[in-house]
């Protein structure tokens, strides 16, 4: 079983996101391990990009902070190497296509394989364009995670049939960021997915409260939280350990209770 599948085995997964290098590389390592200790089942590591068009203000700002401190793709690989010395938690990159293209697909995914990165999410690479990197990623055992949006409609099953790892179900229109309400008919979307694949579905975009987490976990196999975590890191800077532990613990608890 792949590490990603194990994150969803016999449980609903809590997936936490943070931006690598915010506030520092060594704290990114500590915060990943802190989230794991609090019960996170999978960690999404954001490789910062200058122009993250799918992100709301919170994660945009984290990207800028990380880049201004000199974070690079190689710097992110170093973070992964350190985490892997002590942890077997599933790790997935989230980044934009240009840094990966510029690094070179072959070199990038070979490095992922070597260090134990299990998957990648690229929001500006839709189904139609993934063929240029999919065979390379697959050769290196890196699962390319597909996204499904509220507007995907007839595309849902086309995407779901060929997905791997897990499916990232985008809860709402727009960009990432905390929302007070999620109005998309996610149950209907997930029914369509489940009709063609048994791959796990995780819902992301906008989720920040335990009530939302509980609701989403009823519908899906996992819950993805990004902006709320990045906000905690922004607020507490070098001293976010405890706040992160408490927040992730409470979210994980809410998911367990659904």
């Amino acid at each position: 079983m792949s590490r990603i599948s194990s994150a969803f085995e016999h449980k609903k997964a809590f997936i936490g996101f943070l931006t690598a290098g915010d506030p520092t590389p060594s704290l990114t390592i500590e915060y990943i391990l802190e989230m794991e200790r609090a019960g996170a089942d999978l960690i999404e590591i954001g490789i910062p990009f200058s122009d993250p068009t799918a992100e709301g203000v919170v994660i945009q700002d984290a990207n800028i902070r990380a880049l201004s401190k000199g974070m690079t793709p190689d710097g992110v690989f170093d973070i992964v190497a350190s985490v892997r010395q002590v942890s077997n938690i599933p790790l997935v990159f989230l980044t934009y296509i240009n840094p990966v293209f510029h690094y070179g697909y072959e070199k990038f995914f070979a490095r992922c394989e070597e260090l134990g990165v299990d998957g990648i999410i690229i929001p500006d690479m839709p189904y139609e364009e993934r063929s240029e990197l999919l065979p390379i990623a697959t050769t290196h055992g890196v699962e390319v995670i597909s996204l499904i949006a509220p507007t995907s409609r007839q595309r849902i099953q086309m995407i779901a049939k060929e997905s791997s790892g897990f499916l990232y179900v985008v809860s709402s229109m727009g960009v990432t960021g905390v929302r007070s309400e999620i109005n998309t008919d996610l149950a209907a979307m997930i029914d369509l997915i489940k009709a063609v694949t048994d791959i796990p579905c995780a819902i992301g975009f906008g989720i920040n409260t335990t009530i939302q987490a509980k609701q989403m976990a009823k519908l899906a196999d996992g819950v993805i939280v990004g902006s709320a975590i990045v906000k905690i890191i922004e607020k507490y800077g070098n001293h976010a350990h405890q706040a992160l532990f408490e927040y992730v613990s409470s979210m994980k608890q809410a998911i367990r209770e659904q």
Partner: peptide, 12 residues
């Protein structure tokens, strides 16, 4: 060229 954009915009 190509269409490197968010899934949310693909149908549109």
């Amino acid at each position: 060229g190509g269409q490197y954009i968010a899934e949310t915009l693909m149908n549109e």
